[in-house]
Nucleic acid binder design. Structure first.
Length: 649
RNA sequence: GCCGACGUAGCUUAGCUGGUAGAGCAGUCGAUUCGUAAUCGACAGGUCAUCAGUUCGAAUCUGAUCGUCGGCUCCA
């Protein structure tokens, strides 16, 4: 459920034509994204050995099995296997049982080496076509890595740069596998494991190839670690925003409207407005001006921007009465350039900061849609800054400030990545090496000035310029890439944007693309799970509910309600969201209902409270704060909202 | 899009190898007036996702469509 399998939210504005051969939806992003952290060597070895153990078990149960690859991965391992039967979850139990049986035999992992031609012969005889393919690759290239021009020196068994002559095998019981190793000594050293699920996976990740059955397993050194991991999975499941979204009545989907097209209920909409309001309160003082653009455009716009040829299949197309070709916007930047281009601009107008919270639509593959994380409608908190080259650093710093201020109340740790180009593959990028060095240095300068701690990663840049990406860690320590600051020298060129410089000559502005919360849909999915639906008061759709104990308390209860509502401020943020539970139910039942809706404050009122003009305050975690004057409660709530306090778990 | 699992009332779900749908919660009505997570009873709610087909007969079998879920970049 939480995994690290999805690449980052690259090119939040642009399409990246270089998203790679497995591009599944051009807005590939929308899941927890975590760089694969290097595994400790011994853990990796143990997991890999567990993969072999599973393969041995599968071979024992289905002697016809043809094996692909079986590496150690985060949290465990997998093995891709071609089987004559389609496995069911019940089979996992059988395989697991067999694995335990083999494990208890303390079978050794025996290494042996042989010349590559003999190995090809051997694997051919064993009817292992995938292994033969790998061996042939090893023989020719000395590596099995998928990337064609891999500079992968790690590929073992390389005698010289062109190919391998000697390869190693590991034997466990009756199972013999081409493998560079290393492995544990024998199967008893394999730790705690559990087979998790079965998935389809293409041989060598290429959809033109045969699809194999991938068996995923979790594996850890100890049973305790495995249990912790399983607990985390459970916890993540409980927090699943799809489930909470329904339970808390935040959003819904309709078969009639279609997959990936969320409908936001009043409560969910309120949440979005509160987030937007907060963001607006940060960016307006920073000089951002709001704009509005149509949701459709002539395709000409994308023909000029350069997106049309590559991405027209991923757009929704619209036909009208005329011959003209329209489509629904999948991004906003080209539209925004046209506001800039509407008249001659002077350097005195710059920086011009155009912002908009607006929806874009992308025709994602149906199989990739998922809750609010992966949708066909994405509401971006988009903004484009048009500025002179000299202003870039300042503007980026301003954006950086907004990011920091925005994330502070959420208590999510941010990490900062400078996304660089890949100098080994200049053909994948626009611009000269000098351009890249300069622009990367500009962003480094931003980070240095900010005193930021950051890491750099090659190959993560947009194809047109480097960027700064922010990753936030949630309460379950999952990482999500949300905010981004991207340089862009390309689009101003494409649209021939200009400004008149102080010397009277025309010059080219630079564009910065930025997102603070990424998209409202995705950000909501993240904070729903981060808070497990128990939003802090400043975000809670209902902040407090008044619960009269008996009918005779209804009058006093509505007085309390009006008193609190009357204390509201004039803005959306300072308006108190309080309800009165008038149902003719027991007080206990009302408390339970409020509890299930994760309402931060329950204000119980009965005879005592009516007499003393107080409310009895219960928190959703069960804490009873006792009675306090209504005014005292209002102060408490007001402060909490004002400070965007993140307490009252 | 591809592989697999799945779709029964608003929600959670029972329904064995085909004989014509059962419950809890939510809802409505009535009784209860309650001190910190479910008061009691009655009623209502389903062309079993949709559309075709097989059959005397389909929630159950087959096919298509729509939708949901797990995966589809981890490289011996």
């Amino acid at each position: 459920m939480c995994n690290n399998k999805t690449p980052g939210w690259r090119d939040f504005c642009f399409y990246n034509p270089l998203s790679g051969p497995t591009k599944r939806g051009f807005f590939m992003s929308m899941k927890a994204e975590e760089k694969q952290e290097a595994l400790p060597e011994d853990l990796e070895r143990m997991r890999h050995s567990t993969a072999h153990l599973m393969a041995a078990a599968v071979q024992a149960l289905w002697p016809d099995a043809k094996f692909g690859v079986g590496p150690a991965v985060k949290n465990g391992f997998y093995y891709d296997i071609d089987l004559p039967v389609t496995l069911t979850p019940a089979d996992l139990g059988k395989i697991e049982q067999k694995m335990r049986e083999l494990k208890n035999k303390k079978l050794p992992y025996e290494r042996m080496e042989m010349p590559i031609d003999a190995a090809i012969e051997e694997m051919g005889q064993r009817n292992q076509p995938f292994k033969v393919e790998l061996l042939n690759l090893l023989k020719e290239k000395g590596s099995t890595a998928v990337a064609k021009e891999t500079g992968d020196d790690d590929a073992v068994g390389v005698d010289d740069s062109s190919g391998a002559s000697q390869v190693s095998f590991y034997k466990t019981g009756d199972f013999v596998d081409l493998c560079r190793g290393p492995h544990v000594k024998n199967t008893s050293e394999v730790g705690a494991f559990k087979l998790m699920n079965i998935a389809g996976a293409y041989w060598r990740g290429n959809e033109k190839n045969k699809q194999l059955q991938r068996l995923y397993g979790a594996a850890f050194r100890t049973k305790e670690e495995l249990d912790t991991y399983l607990w985390q999975l459970e916890e993540a499941k409980k927090r699943d925003h799809r489930k909470l979204g329904q339970e808390l009545d935040l959003f819904t989907f309709s078969d009639l409207v279609g997959a990936g097209l969320p409908l936001f209920t009043p409560r969910g909409t309120l949440l979005r407005r509160l987030l937007e309001d907060f963001l607006q309160s940060l960016q307006e003082p920073a000089g951002y001006q709001r704009v509005v653009i149509p949701h459709i455009t002539k395709s000409d716009l994308y023909k000029v921007s350069g997106h049309w040829d590559k991405f027209k299949e991923d757009l929704f197309h619209v036909t009208g009465k005329s011959e003209e070709e329209f489509c629904i916007k999948p991004m906003n930047c080209p539209h925004h350039t046209q506001i800039y281009a509407s008249r001659k601009r002077s350097y005195r107008e710059l920086p011009m900061r155009l912002s908009e919270a607006t929806a874009v639509y992308r025709d994602e593959l149906p199989g990739t849609l998922q809750g609010l994380s992966r949708v066909r409608m994405i509401t971006q908190d988009d903004a484009h800054v048009f500025c002179t080259p000299e202003q870039v650093v300042d503007e980026a710093l301003k954006i950086y400030d907004i990011v920091e201020k925005f994330y502070a109340p959420f208590n999510m740790k941010l990490s900062v990545r400078l996304s660089l180009w890949d100098p080994k593959h200049p053909e994948n990028y626009l611009g000269t090496p000098e351009f890249w060095e300069q622009t990367q240095e500009i962003l480094r300068n931003v980070l240095r000035t900010k005193g930021a701690e950051w890491f750099e990663e090659e190959g993560e840049a947009a194809f047109y310029a480097p960027k700064i990406d922010f990753t936030a860690r949630d309460a379950l320590d999952r990482a999500w890439q949300l905010a981004t600051i991207q340089l862009d020298y390309n689009l101003p060129e494409r649209f021939d944007l200009k400004y008149v410089a102080p010397d009277g000559h025309e010059a080219r502005p630079v564009m910065l693309h930025r997102a603070i919360l990424g998209s409202f849909e995705r950000f909501l999915s993240v904070i729903i799970e981060h808070y497990a639906g128990a939003f802090p008061a400043w975000l809670a759709p209902v902040q407090a509910i008044v619960i009269p104990i008996a009918d005779r308390h209804f009058d006093y209860a509505s007085q309390v309600l009006m008193q609190i509502q009357g204390a509201s401020g004039a803005t959306l943020t300072s308006t108190f969201r309080v309800e009165l539970d008038e149902a003719r139910e027991s007080m206990q039942k009302k408390i339970r209902n409020a509890q299930l809706l994760k309402i931060p404050y329950m204000l119980v009122v009965g005879d005592k409270e009516a007499e003393n003009a107080t409310v009895s305050v219960r928190l959703r975690n069960g804490t009873d704060l006792g009675s306090m004057p209504v005014a005292a409660f209002i102060d408490r709530l007001r402060n909490e909202v004002k400070n965007r306090a993140d307490n009252n778990a």
